[in-house]
């Protein structure tokens, strides 16, 4: 009775072992490893963790463990891309992960899981062994006194730190010199100077007076307008020709301000009678006679004409000197 049961059990285990054999063999064909370049660092120092997997070149693949940016007491500084190399009949996969830690103590890097993929399915997993890293603080000798913070260290000057700036500067300088030389040596074209006819203020004043006369303003009954325009023409002329702010001055002030301008002062009486008449017409509703209208226009023209030779003389002198811009005195 005993023998058949033993035989049955042997057959069962044989069949079980035969059925699982391919899987067991695949796991044994993949070799995973995690290795740190040091097991001892100081706070903030870096440790290079090398993950590697070796496997047959065909029919199998390995999924590397997904390591988060921060785990345990470690932080991932950077990670290299996965590299693949062939060595004989073996395919080698590798990745380097740089870690650091800012907590002192002895910290473990846990066993990392590599998934084995065959025909698109995860068929098995392989684990690396855990690693321990000692993270130490800086040794402080408490028996010694505190030391001041070290002074800022001056870094030595090196030409090669600035060579690019020198190169750019020299290039810009050379280009500028080149452009200057080019434009200087280039034959210049004589630019046509636009001839602007400068009409002297007395000409303008005479034209405006003639215009006012031809418009027959007072003949149409607009006396106030006639005297306003007549005095405005004269005031503008004084302002432009003699730099007297005549537009902002009353008649009496204007008569005071022409005193230093000899050529105008000679016409003072004429100007006074004209301005007085104009004030009466403008501000007192007075209607001067036609003779007075004509007389006012004649006075205005005479004043401008009187100053004309002196103005021309001054303009000629100015053209000769090309300097002085003094009003005619």
């Amino acid at each position: 009775m005993v023998k058949p049961i033993i035989i049955k059990r042997l057959i069962f285990f044989f069949l079980l072992g035969f059925g699982l054999a391919p899987f067991i063999s695949s796991a044994q064909q993949v070799d995973v490893n995690a290795q740190a370049d040091t097991d001892r660092i100081r706070l903030g120092e870096q440790v290079r963790l090398r993950l590697s997997a070796s496997m047959p070149p065909q029919g199998m693949n390995v999924v590397f463990p997904q390591i988060p940016d921060s785990f345990g007491h470690f932080e991932v500084v950077r990670r290299s891309p996965l590299d693949t190399t062939a060595q004989g009949n073996t395919k080698l996969l590798g990745q380097t992960i740089v870690l650091t830690s800012f907590d002192s103590g002895r910290w473990d890097i846990p066993a990392l899981r590599f998934d084995l993929v065959s025909a698109g399915n995860i068929t098995d997993s392989a684990f690396t062994g855990p690693l321990s890293i000692d993270v130490n603080t800086v040794d402080v000798d408490t028996t010694k006194a505190f030391k001041p913070i070290k002074a800022v260290r001056t870094v030595g000057w090196s030409f090669w730190d600035y060579w690019l700036y020198f190169a750019i500067g020299i290039t810009v300088l050379l280009v500028a010199i080149g452009l200057i030389v080019y434009f200087r040596s280039k034959p210049k074209k004589a630019a046509p100077v636009p001839v602007v006819a400068v009409v002297p203020p007395y000409e303008i004043a005479l034209q405006q007076l003639q215009q006012l006369k031809s418009e027959k303003v007072w003949q149409q009954g607009d006396i106030k307008q006639y005297y306003t325009r007549l005095t405005d023409i004269l005031r503008n002329y004084f302002e432009q020709q003699f730099n007297i702010p005549a537009l902002e001055q009353t008649s009496e002030e204007l008569l005071q301000h022409i005193k230093p301008v000899t050529i105008l002062n000679q016409q003072r009486d004429k100007l006074r009678s004209l301005l007085s008449l104009a004030d009466l017409a403008k501000f007192a509703k007075m209607t001067p006679s036609p003779e007075e209208h004509e007389g006012a226009m004649q006075h205005a023209q005479e004043i401008v004409e009187w100053t004309k030779p002196a103005v021309e003389k001054a303009a000629a002198a100015e053209a000769g000197k090309e300097e002085t811009k003094q009003p005619v005195k």
């Binding site: 009466l280 509703k285 007075m286 001067p288 006679s289």
Partner: peptide
Amino acid sequence: MENTSDIR
């Protein structure tokens, strides 16, 4: 000179 009578 002729004046406007009122003003005169």
